[in-house]
């Protein structure tokens, strides 16, 4: 049985109970134990890195220190959190001078980074700890009527040198995990390109254009829904559809589901337990087909 400290970050606990509930319930069915460390906070993602990288590494390391104290590896649901923590962990482990500088900043909190834990993405835990064989055997409600467009977003894969999740140009982990649920995983143009999520508020027009491109390509490919891994991609593509309707005068009606939601449904978790009302684009037509 695997055991991890669950890293929720900021967006999931405040805005996306659908991501959290589906992940907790699915992982419980797969006998992965999750430990909540209450002091866990912000991962210090790219918007904070843009302001001050070194302080940002210190904030990320603060969370890593909490996991070190608990003697547990971390499991991140949000790809942005996964990236920020994995980069901080890798850079500090390999650069003693940087580690010393960050530890000087961290000493204000009484913490010291040692470099004794790993950070894993949800997909890695499913693929490596559970494995496809066990996962397939646990599926009680196969999603065989669904054609799903996998959407990796950026920060599960890149920078690949530090994240090491999969090939950054030709990944297959998400497609494989979608097919393990009995669904068909679709190919479509630009599936590895940015959702525009981090440009929301910086240039809303650019952000919506980037989201539109993914929605258009996935729709054209005949997708019943798009599977996401990151709360920012979810917002960009879900709420994004409402904004695209009003600002770009173009209508899409394609449900966006986190992979964890598809997983929970396939493992037999009742849809009423998953806070699916969080979705701006209704998912009823997906539920009707499974």
């Amino acid at each position: 049985m695997s055991k991890y400290a669950l890293f929720l970050g900021c967006t999931i606990p405040a805005r996306q109970p659908n991501y959290e509930l589906s992940s907790r319930k699915a992982l419980a069915k797969l006998e992965v134990e999750l430990v909540d460390l209450p002091d866990m906070t912000c991962c210090s993602p790219p918007p904070v890195q843009s302001l001050d990288l070194e302080t940002s590494l210190a904030i990320a390391s603060y969370n890593l220190c909490l996991a070190e104290e608990a003697g547990l590896d971390l499991l991140a649901l949000c790809s942005g959190c996964f990236e920020s923590l994995a980069i901080a962990n890798a850079e500090l482990k390999h650069d003693p001078e940087l580690k010393a500088r960050i530890n000087r900043i961290l000493s204000a909190t009484g913490k010291q980074f040692r470099g004794t834990v790993e950070i894993k993405h949800l997909l890695e835990v499913l693929n490596e700890d559970i494995g496809l064989k066990r996962l397939k055997a646990a599926v009680s409600r196969p999603l065989s009527n669904l054609k799903i467009a996998p959407f990796y977003g950026c920060h599960a894969l890149r920078p690949s040198e530090l994240l090491k999740l999969d090939d950054p140009e030709q990944p297959h982990i998400l497609e494989t995990l979608i097919e393990a649920l009995g669904a068909k995983s679709l190919e479509y143009p630009n599936k590895l390109k940015c959702c525009g999520g981090l440009l929301r508020g910086v240039s809303d027009k650019l952000a919506l254009e980037l989201a539109r491109d993914k929605l258009l390509n996935a729709s054209k490919a005949g997708a019943d829904c798009i599977a996401t891994l990151c709360p920012f991609c979810f917002v960009a593509l879900d709420i994004g559809q409402i904004q695209i309707r009003s600002k770009l005068d173009e209508t899409f009606d394609i449900p966006i589901l986190h992979y964890s939601e598809l997983l929970a449904l396939a493992l037999g978790v009742e849809s009423s337990e998953l806070a699916l009302e969080t979705h701006k684009i209704r998912v009823d037509k997906i539920l009707d087909r499974i």
Partner: peptide, 9 residues
């Protein structure tokens, strides 16, 4: 820059 890292790759 959307920090997508495609250029870096």
């Amino acid at each position: 820059c959307s920090a997508c890292y495609t250029c870096s790759e």
